[in-house]
């Protein structure tokens, strides 16, 4: 199973006059977990929204496997309180699904008993699970999550990631996610993509963690990065890096407490 689900070739995206992404080359194969990391404004959400066709690229090529089914969990879904909506009704948008399918998806997402609740009355964790359930309805080849745990507390987001792992086991789908929680990223991903307008570096977590581009972006002492966990010895001050990212070397020696977060 190494068929490519989706691939980008030299993709550029402009948002207004600004270049949000340029020369992005990327391929996602079935079953793998890929995580996108990068500072704010680096185009992470833009990349995901391009993949789900919410944004049209201004250059380059996107190739999708024929009949590719994408399950998309957006970064944030504000539901206006003026819109009355039960969880069950929400799952039937835009395509009506029957009760059995809806119930299965809710159970798979760990939201089994929420069907009759109002969307606006859910807690943050419950809401994300419902979004996950909705993404699972069409039995996706790939699950795309955009900072799905934003706003959840630590146990809440740990639970959610455990659920994702469970889902991947059950469905065998690929997972592409954006995350700020570097320790989770490093522990759970097959591949990490470090983004800052373009792909700075990519590869297995430990390789990326030791890449100079990654260190330039996140610093070698960033809290929670597994970089410190395994590769502190390979630390380098790489000043040849072409980007002018803020360097953060001020807490290089703080790796001891970041281990505790794992």
């Amino acid at each position: 199973m190494s068929d490519t689900l989706i691939s980008l070739k030299n993709v550029c995206v402009h948002i207004g006059a600004k270049v949000a992404l340029h020369d992005v080359n990327l391929a996602i194969k079935s079953g793998e977990i890929v995580t996108v990391v990068g500072p704010n404004g680096s185009g992470k959400s833009t990349l995901l929204r391009t993949l789900v066709s919410a944004i049209k690229p201004t250059g380059g090529q996107i190739t999708r496997m024929p009949n590719l089914r994408i399950g998309y969990v957006p970064q944030k879904l504000h539901i206006d309180p003026t819109l009355p909506l039960t969880v069950r009704r929400f799952l039937s948008l835009p395509r009506r699904v029957n009760d059995a399918v809806a119930e299965k998806a809710l159970n798979d997402a760990g939201a089994g008993d929420l069907g009759k609740r109002q969307m606006t009355g859910l807690s943050g964790g419950q809401f994300q699970r419902v979004l996950l359930a909705r993404a699972l309805l069409n039995d996706p080849h790939i699950l795309i999550l955009d900072e799905a745990t934003q706003g959840l507390d630590q146990p809440g987001s740990a639970d959610f990631y455990a659920q994702i792992a469970q889902v991947r086991q059950n469905f065998g789908c690929a997972v592409l996610m954006v995350s700020h929680e570097l320790h989770v990223v490093m522990a759970a991903s097959d591949r990490v993509i470090c983004l800052n307008g373009h792909i700075c570096c990519e590869g297995a977590p430990e390789i990326v963690a030791s890449a100079p581009e990654y260190r330039a972006l996140f610093g070698s002492g960033t809290q929670g990065a597994l970089a410190l966990y395994r590769h502190e010895h390979s630390h380098t001050h790489d000043e040849t890096c072409a980007h002018d990212h803020a360097q953060s070397h001020h807490n290089e020696n703080s790796h001891d407490n970041s281990e505790a977060t794992l």
Binding site: Y72, P74, L93, P94
Partner: peptide
């Protein structure tokens, strides 16, 4: 259905081909 979905969230709508 399409109106309701895009009212809910434009990105969800685009992802569903609306």
């Amino acid at each position: 259905s399409a109106l309701l979905t895009s009212t809910l969230n434009p990105d969800l709508a685009s992802a569903a081909g609306i």
